[in-house]
Amino acid sequence: MLKRTPILAVLFGAVIAFTVAQTFEDSARPFSFGQQAILFLFSILPGMGFAMLLDPYPRKKKEEYLKINFYEEQT
């Protein structure tokens, strides 16, 4: 995995968290600091996926796994 991938994951996560907060937060019921932290941590997960799309390593792994049959009978 490239060194930039986890850094990009955090950046993408911040964008996702900001977008979610802007879209769903009710001004009468704002997120607390702890709730914002949970949202940010959860948002890093899809952020990691988007960062991995820009990384050649996960693509190679997918190609490798496509060549394996995981359901062959063990002899």
Partner: peptide, 15 residues
């Protein structure tokens, strides 16, 4: 979890 779309969709489910 070595593949990108699992992170996007599973992480998205947590969001």
């Amino acid at each position: 979890y070595q593949q990108s779309w699992t992170w996007i969709l599973e992480g998205g489910a947590f969001v």
